[in-house]
Amino acid sequence: MTGLVKAKQYDWKDSNLALFGSDTEKQVKKESAESEPAWKGIGQKPGVQIWRIVKFKVASWPKEDYGKFYNGDSYIVLNTYKEESSDELLYDVHFWIGKYSTQDEYGTAAYKTVELDTFLDDKPIQHREVQGFESDLFKSYFDTITILDGGAESGFNKVTPEKYEARLFHFCGTKKLVEVRQVPRAASRLDSGDVFILDLGLTIYQWNGRGSNKDERMKAMQYLIALKDERRGRAKSEVLEEEGLSKSHEFYHALTEEDVPDEAENMKPKDLTVELFRLSDASGKMTFNVEKTGSVATSDLDSKDVFIVDTKRAVYVWIGLDTSEAERKNAMSYAHKYLQNTDHPLLSVTCLAEGKHDKQIRIALSA
């Protein structure tokens, strides 16, 4: 019998997404955007809409699963909203990349995000989101974000409870947002400051760490109830308190998997200095150079060029009003390639256009 092979995590040092938006990428045209069935009727009223990339196509994601993401997939998320005292519809469009998503999937998600931006007359703010490093804006759309292993086809609604594969879920956060992640079913993953649910199919345990907060406990209890409802009353459950729980309990005996370290945990910047880069073709060829380090203000930006700001918490691509077509087309590509060569390639990336998103860039630079 051959063992299961763990899917390869995304390799940010060798990604075809570097071609996204460049001159080698097929030009996205309004006609092609209008022919995409997924975009019909979207963005007409405030709210969030989500799609998953399936074999190069855009598939609607069920509303009951909003906030759930599989780490083997890529998604597009559109938020439509109005600002106070205005009836104008505004948009944020995000493509979210699971850590085991294939290059084809997240390349398609990136391409389709540009297409969606074109469909909505270039009004949206574009964002790249990476699993585990999502922007605060992205997180704000959901009461809970749940990260599940595999692709959407690995969901368990098609099999009987007796055939469920045991899963361990980690609940961590506050009232503002509790994140739920499926983690290896290993004892080393338990953290006294958080809550865990062990789903064995017909038996479900909620393990409350001695230092866990009420929000984590409440969110875990809601999750547990939802799991039991899915099983139509066939599953039993038990809430366990870490304090005083015997190590001989079945809960601990079921934690038999080998822990697998998350490669992304080591991809955090060591130097937190803010850096500003200028992308320009004024010399006749495309150049990308450091413009400034340390504090950056809007007065440092020039309408004739593209600027990339790395705050070490997020990356912002600012496109001046008078930039050339080549500069605009290559803006996101250069931001992506720049991050590939850093020690923090997984940061979220937001693209802001001068004149349309001036408020957002001021907020980003003052944070």
Rank of each mutant, 00 (worst) to 15 (best):
L4T: 14
K8A: 08
K13P: 00
L19D: 01
Q27N: 05
V28T: 05
S35H: 02
A38T: 00
G41R: 03
G43V: 12
K45C: 04
K45Y: 09
I50E: 11
I53G: 01
F56N: 15
V58L: 15
K68M: 13
T80A: 10
K82T: 15
K82C: 14
L90Y: 05
H94S: 15
Y100P: 01
Q103V: 09
Q103A: 11
E105A: 15
Y106C: 07
T113K: 10
T113Y: 00
E115L: 13
L116V: 06
L116N: 01
D117P: 02
Q126D: 04
E134Y: 09
A152Y: 10
T160S: 13
T160M: 15
L168I: 08
C172T: 11
K175S: 11
V180S: 07
R181C: 14
R181H: 10
R185M: 11
A186R: 05
A186Q: 04
A186M: 10
A187K: 11
L198I: 05
D199E: 10
I204M: 09
N213W: 05
K214A: 14
M221V: 03
A226H: 08
A226I: 00
L227R: 02
R231Q: 02
E243D: 11
K247H: 09
S248A: 13
Y252G: 03
E257R: 09
E258N: 13
D262L: 11
E265Y: 04
K285H: 10
T293Q: 13
D300F: 03
T311C: 06
V317M: 05
V317F: 07
I319N: 00
L321S: 15
E325R: 12
Y334A: 02
Y338H: 14
L339W: 03
N341K: 15
H344N: 10
P345F: 08
P345N: 11
L346E: 06
C351G: 01
L352K: 03
D358I: 05
R362D: 13
L365Q: 10
